[in-house]
Amino acid sequence: MTETIKDKLLLIFTKNPVAGKVKTRLAKDLGNEKALEIYKFLLNHSAKFTAAVNATKQVYYSDSVNKDDIWNNELYSKKKQLGEDLGERMQNAFQNGFEENYKKIIIIGTDMYDIDSTDIENAFQDLENHEYVIGPAEDGGYYLFGMKSLNSDVFKNKEWGTSSVLQDTLQDLKNKDVKLLETRNDVDLLDDIKDHPAFQKYITI
């Protein structure tokens, strides 16, 4: 049976771009306005490369859905994240996707610059032969997570935003078939971007 776009769902978790609420660790070095500029730059990159992904795409906003922004309403359906913490919010998004009968679901954030549509397409392909796919981040978290059926354990008992998330998640999946992708660096700290050519215009004085 030929796989269709209806079989694949890409969940994109994003924060509403508000100064003082995004990239707070960057803001400690660069200030709230610069941090917001960088986050908007990352949002634009995310909207550009995900548009080319051959899958249904849903953008989940942290605070409120914006029908008039960079996410094209014809390419993305828009929802609000629901849950007390990040884990519960992700679990609810995956659960909704599986209830809508998607066969493969992948979630990403909007903190990455060194990622493109091919990475997402390859991750969906990896789900052909594996139960789970994870893109490890250099800070000990992950930048991509995908699965073919709901496993709620991976979203519970985690200290989100810390260096233990990946290892704790792998521990939950220790007897499962997991494909680990290439480790990538997401953008949280000044050290993450200070030597990256794409960000020089934001950090040079």
Results as ranks from 00 to 15, higher is better:
Y102I: 05
T24S: 13
K179Y: 11
L36I: 05
I108Y: 01
T50P: 00
D192A: 06
L166M: 00
K23E: 06
T2K: 14
D195T: 08
E131N: 12
L166G: 00
E131Y: 11
S152H: 14
T162C: 10
E88I: 11
F98G: 06
F13R: 06
L10D: 03
I12A: 01
N32Y: 13
L127E: 00
V22D: 02
L166K: 05
E37V: 05
D139F: 08
N101K: 15
W71A: 04
E182H: 09
N44E: 15
D191N: 14
D63Y: 10
E138F: 13
K201R: 14
L189T: 08
D172P: 04
D29S: 11
G161Y: 15
Y132L: 05
L9F: 04
L36W: 06
I115W: 02
G109M: 07
L150S: 07
V18T: 15
T118F: 07
D114Y: 14
Y61C: 03
D114N: 12
D114T: 02
A19L: 07
V133R: 03
F13V: 10
T50G: 01
R25W: 11
N175H: 14
N16L: 10
L75I: 12
Y102H: 15
L190Q: 09
L190A: 04
L181E: 02
P17K: 15
K57E: 00
G141N: 05
E84F: 14
D192G: 06
A51V: 04
F145W: 01
E138W: 13
M112G: 02
F94K: 03
K103E: 07
D126A: 12
A51T: 09
N92E: 11
L42E: 01
N92P: 03
G83T: 10
K21Y: 15
V178C: 07
L189Q: 09
L36F: 08
A93G: 03
L36E: 02
S62A: 15
S64R: 12
D153G: 01
I205M: 07
N44Q: 14
L43S: 04
Y202T: 04
L180S: 00
K67F: 14
E74L: 13
T4E: 11
N54Y: 11
N129V: 05
V133K: 05
D177P: 00
I193M: 03
K148E: 00
Q81A: 13
G31W: 05
L150H: 11
N54K: 11
Q200H: 09
A47I: 04
S117T: 05
P17Q: 15
K8F: 12
W160K: 06
D114R: 07
Q58D: 07
E100W: 10
T169A: 08
S46Q: 08
G161T: 12
A27T: 05
N73C: 09
D186N: 13
T118A: 05
F124D: 01
E131L: 08
A47R: 02
N72H: 09
G87K: 09
D69V: 06
N185W: 07
V59W: 04
E99R: 14
A198S: 10
